[in-house]
Nucleic acid binder design. Sequence first.
RNA 1: GCAGCUGUAGCUCAGUUGGUUAGAGCGCCGGUCUGUGGAACCGGAGGUCGGUGGUUCGAGCCCACCCAGCUGUACCA
Length: 546
Amino acid sequence: MAKDKPTKLRARMPRGFADRGPGELVPTRAMLETIRKVYELYGFEALETPFIEYTDALGKFLPDQDRPNEGVFSFQDDDEQWLSLRYDLTAPLARHVAENFDKLPKPFRSYRAGWVFRNEKPGPGRFRQFMQFDADTVGAPTVAADAEICMMMADTLEALGLAGQFVIKVNNRKVLDGVLEAIGLGGDENAGRRLTVLRAIDKFDKVGISGVRDLLGAGRWENPEAKSGDFTKGAGLASSEVDLVLKFINASPQMTGRDSEYLTREQFDEWMATLPEHERGQFLYDERAGWAGSYVNYKTCDMLERAFGSNAKAAEGIKELREIGNLSYFAGYRTDRIRIDPSVVRGLEYYTGPVFEAELTFEVKDEKGRPVRFGSVGGGGRYDGLVGRFRGEAVPATGFSIGVSRLASALSYLNTDAAPEFGPVVVVVMDRDQTAHYMGLVGTLRQAGIRAEMYLGNPKNLGNQFKYADRRNSPCVVIQGSDERANGQVQIKDLIEGAKAAAAITDNAEWRESRPAQFACTEGELVEKVRELLDHHGVPHGAALG
RNA sequence: GCAGCUGUAGCUCAGUUGGUUAGAGCGCCGGUCUGUGGAACCGGAGGUCGGUGGUUCGAGCCCACCCAGCUGUACCA
């Protein structure tokens, strides 16, 4: 065999996964830190659980198969027990609480950030590994715990600079269950159809009211007008039942923007007159702001009450929603931040009460000018049954999860002018036999808290070393040849200033000759001069590096 | 899973009715240049034309199947 090329191993990464460079890691780290601070302020404490749990602890095992549910990365331990990579942070928390129940203070308030894994088809903004940042209160049955979670989420998103660009939507599974009961879908035998109905409601955002109508009835075509494309089989409800469900989804004052909650004094008084006496005290008119607190939430609950209040389960849920609305209102959260929205369904399995969803309300365009909708960047709710699976008794719990990766990408669209990440100061090598001395210069800078390195590549060409520094986005390079060394001096070249100066120079000879933005100083002044230069360009060093 | 679209160099893409040794720009590496980033000039590396089979004297091009990617849809505890 002559010189056959060795078969190259193709470097590739499994789809649905991603490498992340400094451009993503640095802002994400800052974001996590912001979230953590808010959670801590609310009195939650840190907790970390492993990536891997016993599959049954995660809650899903197909009954007829000896394999765990697809969608979960699973494998067998050497004792043949099934293990899985966690697909959210809630089930592991439930396991932790159940396992340490007697040791933990109750209510137990904890937060945790971490990677979760889902073996599903990846898509734009959907990965098979992504990060969540959760906060949960375990052992508190009160609706105040749910309301608090909603408020904390609103605070968190505001701390991230998203004020006015999000809404926390709230619904209640009890109301949903009541509605389903009302259309005769109660009981275990209707579990399948219930699911279909819930999914149809969940699609309200995507397919609109007519789409939901189709999905609740016979079914929906991908292209409704042409009746072409994929056909999704519907729930097969009778038209009166469909109407009832639609009435539920629509049980919210029609809002165009936020205007409907800004009432004139006259409108406010008019509205107050419609309220029962004992309810009126909850609402005050704010002359300065011209708004009436939880008016929209109140109206929503009102409409739900009228339509479904006769069902006991729904009535209970509506009462809880009302309470969340009121608690938020008294805490100063208007309905543009925490809004009751009956179309929110959320995680179809383990939620038992209030459910929440954080949605970003702004739109941006991608590179091709097409609108990008971020939609939900987090969600949660009450799951009173999850911990109880490990114990004889029900343990109430409520929590919220932020989709860190998705939120980070949304934020990156907002902060398009994010400052570029600066590289280290590069000490170039002019004389190979002076490596020790160059390393000494580097060490001096490092001791002063300045990121610095000596060029470790082939030092033959000085130009290459500048190119390297340029590519690292270094603020400056330090140069010392034999001339400088003889005088105990170094040259400091300001690459940022130099780049600006370069724009005016077209001739290479002139470029080299002029040595833009370069100055000499003694070795003793090195730290001081570099610091000045870094400060001048706003490059962090010392304590600012964090 | 289903449907549509797309697969040619690291990237963006040419490649004629099927015809010799598959090209360009950008990028990358090296040199001009062992004391200066950009620009310029010169040189170089880099290709199983997504894969397999078929039709043909001859396939990057035609046919079949497969694979991958994108988009939508379904599922998403």
